[in-house]
Design a protein around this nucleic acid. Structure first.
Lengths: 180, 180
DNA sequence: ACCCCGAGTCAACAGTCGATGACTTAAGCT
DNA sequence: AGCTTAAGTCATCGACTGTTGACTCGGGGT
């Protein structure tokens, strides 16, 4: 039998919620399904997180972990960024959960705006001081469009693309948005 | 009183459904709300379209109306494409309905793949015969990312951007994907 | 051994949704 | 006017959902 460990159960619920939100979106994810994945009653989820919306906010708290770009050579910028984004996309489902939910939830859309304004824009400010918010939005649009097409729409040519091929295609685009 | 005109009612229902799907996505759109928008009973919607999914398929049938790109000069390509996409985005809600729904519905995602493979890729084939599917996917990712960030996430710098500014930013990107 | 507190369960409520089938009403035709 | 056909309504079903409150169970401290 599962040991009665509240902290471990909470972490397991967060992991299951992330996977469900990433795969099914916010609306089609049910608290009962998340609880069943962990082998626990749905009422316990509410007890720990208060509501489905609060569970989502905890589960979809995204940290891109962008590195300090100060001193990175212009030729390396795009490679560093694309590499980081691929890792975030494929390491854990948090990003995909936020992306899927943002399509229909104003709260999730706001969270995504917060990621762009609070993480991407500050990181890019180390590279350019000319309209960093506008450049961050364009970089965000590029990266979100790529992720949407690859992981959500699953358009074959992008699904089959390797990380290196993506860097080759996206590199000049990011350089353009960052430096022109 | 509304005249009893089945064809007109059906068109009104399709228009209302498009608006609802575009604003709220597939799951949060209810047949009752669509029917109420037209001033009609929900059962009538099922009678005309069979199911909510079938109503969506009829409402979100997207025609980009891309022009024949044969003979368009390389320098004009991006401007023509961006201009066409803006018109599709802002003329009617069909595109937004499909985009929002595609985030959580495999059927809608398939429809979006169909638009890329059946409309974008053939149009681009008039410009390049080197990997048109891959180039269409990249153009799609760019355009979908821009639309997602502007109309769904409503990131301020992209919301405030004029069509001309967007053409200036996106032009070199589309040229890169089409011609490099 | 007993108690106690927190982890986890159970049953149920209240609301909503898509869908169904029988019913009613309006309009065009003879 | 009367009838017929289709347009539209009505009540309702059955399933599902988030959330609640009362309950049970198990393990650690005395």
């Amino acid at each position: 039998m599962r040991p009665r460990d509240a902290a471990a159960t909470e972490q397991a619920l967060l992991a299951a919620a992330r996977a469900r939100f990433a795969a099914d979106g916010f609306d089609r994810t049910t608290i009962r399904a998340v609880a069943a994945d962990v082998g626990v009653d749905a009422a316990l989820v509410i007890r720990y997180f208060g509501s489905k919306q609060a569970l989502f906010s905890r589960a979809a708290d995204l940290d891109l972990g962008l590195p300090d770009l100060t001193g990175v050579r212009a030729g390396d910028l795009a490679r560093v960024l694309v590499d980081r984004f691929f890792t975030v996309w494929e390491d854990d489902p948090t990003f995909l959960a936020l992306l899927r939910a943002a399509a229909t939830s104003e709260v999730a859309a706001g969270a995504m705006r917060g990621v762009l304004a609070g993480q991407v824009a500050p990181a890019l400010a180390a590279v350019t001081d000319d309209r960093p918010a506008e450049r961050a939005a364009l970089v965000g649009a590029t990266v979100l469009g790529f992720a949407l097409t690859r992981y959500v729409l699953r358009v074959p040519p992008l699904v089959e693309m390797t990380r290196e091929q993506a860097q080759t295609w996206l590199g000049p685009v990011l350089r353009h948005y960052l430096l022109d």
